[in-house]
């Protein structure tokens, strides 16, 4: 009997731990959800006296917010496309060609992956002043792309190493050029890898407040990650209800993108490329 009981707890324990951890991970979001429906929301967690959508409607109806969200989507979206495109291109020769010194280049890329971007923001700001890119959305987009590119290339190369080369070779025999074989044969097999790079880049960029805050000056060019501070007033007053509603809306794109990408990042393949050295 005793042994049976032990075994049962042994079997239940992992389930219990998993669900406990899950609960712990959900808790911090609780306030955001509850407060977003409370027009009188304060910093403390409490059920709203009356359920209201007024926070959402006032956030959504403000044209400045609409613009900030569009700019945010444009900034992060284009950045993601640039990174996916450039890193796929760059990863191809790095994975397929037999090049002398290739290993060194890979090491340099790894090295770049590791640099904290925060550290170079002052010089980047100066550089942008010098080449007159300051306050330019495109410039900011390009900088953001460059900053997430090394990691993108690195992941993409590992994904590509996993795509069998025989398929390409048969395409070459059929007379396809390098580019055609890349587009027709490698790309479709790379879809999960592309999506993984995609989601990593987008998540990293969407929540980034620092880079656009430093590089963009005109308030009407700022993305949603910066304008979120509008709910903080002169003497430390915060409109918590609207802040929470704004946060909820702000989380949608990353959650949706993850939902879509997850389907393509098939089981067992999730990040296997990224995990490899």
């Amino acid at each position: 009997m005793k042994k049976m009981g032990y075994r049962r707890t042994k079997n239940i324990l992992p389930y219990f731990s998993l669900l406990f951890i899950a609960a712990m991970f959900i808790l911090p979001l609780l306030w955001v959800i509850v407060a977003s429906f409370d027009s009188q929301a304060q910093q403390s967690l409490k059920l709203p006296d009356s359920f209201t959508l007024s926070n959402y409607s006032s956030v959504l109806s403000d044209p400045a917010n609409q613009r900030a969200f569009m700019i945010g989507l444009l900034l992060s979206g284009c950045q993601t496309l640039i990174v996916v495109f450039c890193s796929a291109l760059a990863a191809y020769p790095l994975s397929r060609f037999k090049l002398k010194g290739k290993q060194k280049l890979m090491l340099v890329i790894l090295f770049l992956t590791s640099l904290p971007i925060t550290a170079v923001m002052v010089p980047v700001y100066q550089l942008f002043l010098m080449i007159n890119l300051q306050d330019s959305i495109i410039g900011t987009m390009l900088f953001l792309s460059a900053s997430s590119l090394p990691y993108g290339i690195w992941m993409m190369k590992n994904f590509m190493d996993n795509v069998p080369v025989e398929l390409e070779e048969s395409a070459w025999i059929d007379g396809a050029s390098l580019f055609t074989s890349l587009r027709r044969v490698v790309a479709p097999l790379m879809v999960p890898g592309l999506f993984t790079v995609c989601i990593f880049t987008f998540i990293g960029s969407w929540g980034n407040f620092f880079v656009p805050f430093i590089l963009l000056q005109s308030p009407d060019k700022l993305p949603a990650s910066v304008t979120i501070f509008q709910f903080f007033g002169q003497f430390g007053t915060v409109q918590y209800g609207q802040l929470a509603a704004y946060s909820m809306l702000y989380m949608i794109p990353t959650f949706v993108l993850y939902g879509i990408a997850q389907r393509y990042m098939s089981q067992g393949f999730v990040l296997s490329g990224a995990a490899k050295g």
């Binding site: 080449i131 007159n132 890119l133 306050d135 330019s136 959305i137 495109i138 410039g139 390009l142 060019k221």
Partner: peptide
């Protein structure tokens, strides 16, 4: 390239 970029951004901005 930077010249090109600045022109581009100048136009659009």
């Amino acid at each position: 390239v930077s010249l090109g970029l600045s022109v581009l951004s100048g136009c659009s901005d």
